[in-house]
Design a binder for these strands. Structure first.
Lengths: 243, 243
DNA sequence: CGCTTTTTTGAAGATGGTCAATGGGTGTGG
DNA sequence: CCACACCCATTGACCATCTTCAAAAAAGCG
């Protein structure tokens, strides 16, 4: 069984110093586990959650549901992320949250989180910081989907996901689990599924990466990062991987 | 002379209740005024600001500077906004901030803001909430630039700007100041300048809006909102305009 | 009033979307 | 164990849209 509190602690320690009292405060948080099958929604646009989700296993994705029923994916979240921490202060969800592949989330009641913030402001600042990095990732997505070529766009997304996974020790050598379909990639990068396929073929041909069976493999990080114009500064990480 | 503290108080009151002590804490904040001419940078990508800017007059814009020198605008900020409040917790700027037309900003030292958060957590929550709405606006921009037609994209941007301006009482009837060039609109929406012009012509022809001489005029809000698929929910405003 | 910047318009070409068909892999039920 | 069905990936062809390039008109500025 996974230590849920530990997952949060490790995540916050990626950038913030936690005191002994901070650790106690985190360990005091209660939660309920929720297991999700691939594609299942954890919360939907318009709803008002009473708790915040912590990714404990697998991956979650945020998406806007459009009028015509199509989806626009906004971001992907891995173990340790708090993908709907905004719900603590914003009443209604302006987007939905679903499982990308099989996933497990711990739901922590807002009221306990707020109590923790009052008692230990530093923890509030640490989580605030998380939400700010989130925003930086959104900003980068705006630029990615608005100003880059299809090839660069896709390379950038893969670079970001792999880099973040590596920082959180979720990679396996040069590979990582990424149980996402081409259609979902299209809904993320704003391209038609045919283009997604052709673009992936191009990247494969360039020997910089491979993506098959829900597994992303990096073959040449330097080249891939160059193609995707990937500069990890916007992730605001203190402890960057060696690459 | 404008009352800088009042600008911030009014902004926070758009969604948060402030106590008498909160008001005192805000009034205790010191600041330095900075006047910017059109296009001038307030802070650049990579720098580490020591204070946060509050828009006191005019408009500021955030943008990514790309390798090839082109810009991608990320958001626009009006009187009352704190466009770089993220700088309080994130060391380095991952984007730049410039004046859109003539503008005035008040720079408030981070250290005083942090002291205020410790003393009055509720004010921290109010500003945190601001940064979360910011993130929601970024999310909407991802969807806008990735999944909408050129016409819808532009209509949506104009709807958002006008709606936000109206909430902050910055409109003049059906018009607002928007001293932005077509080239900048292109760098915002991810379209070539020729397309920007042709798209604006389309919207003009539809009698839903006009945009000339740095002034945006709404002629038919309902239609424009429909064209842009604009639903203000993501702005998380408590007090919505009558429209 | 002359200069610069911005807007406007036209035409050609590139790019990506749409549509349609094929193939591979997996799971189910007979 | 095989047949079938379904989902997803793959590929090709055509077409619509947007970008690029170029040039003229209009507006802003000293």
């Amino acid at each position: 069984m996974k230590d849920v509190h530990r997952v949060l602690i490790d995540k916050l320690r990626e950038h913030s110093r936690l005191s002994a009292d901070d650790l106690i405060a985190i360990r005091d948080l209660s939660f309920t586990l929720r297991e999700l099958e691939s594609g299942e929604d954890l919360i939907r646009q318009g709803e008002s959650p009473k708790g915040a989700a912590l990714v404990v296993d697998g991956m979650l994705g945020r998406y806007h549901l459009q009028r015509d029923g199509r989806r626009q994916f906004l971001s992907f979240h891995m173990v340790g992320d708090l993908p709907d921490s905004q719900g603590i202060f914003l009443e209604r969800m302006d987007h939905s949250l679903c499982a990308i592949g099989h996933a497990v989330a711990a739901i922590i009641p807002h009221r306990e989180i707020l109590r923790m913030f009052e008692a230990r402001p530093g923890l509030g600042f640490a989580i605030w910081r998380e939400t700010l990095v989130d925003a930086a990732i959104f900003r980068e997505a705006i630029t990615n989907n608005s100003a880059r070529t299809m090839k660069a766009r896709m390379a950038h997304l893969f670079c970001e996901l792999f880099y973040r996974a590596e920082v959180s020790k979720l990679t396996d050598g040069n590979s990582m689990q990424l149980p996402i379909s081409l259609a979902q990639l299209g809904d993320t990068l704003g391209m038609a599924i045919a283009t997604v396929n052709r673009t992936i073929s191009l990247l494969r041909a360039s020997k910089t990466m491979d993506f098959r069976y829900g597994v992303l493999t990096i073959r040449n990080w330097q080249s891939l990062a160059k193609i995707g114009e990937f500069d990890p500064g916007y992730l605001h990480l203190k402890r960057a991987p060696a690459r």
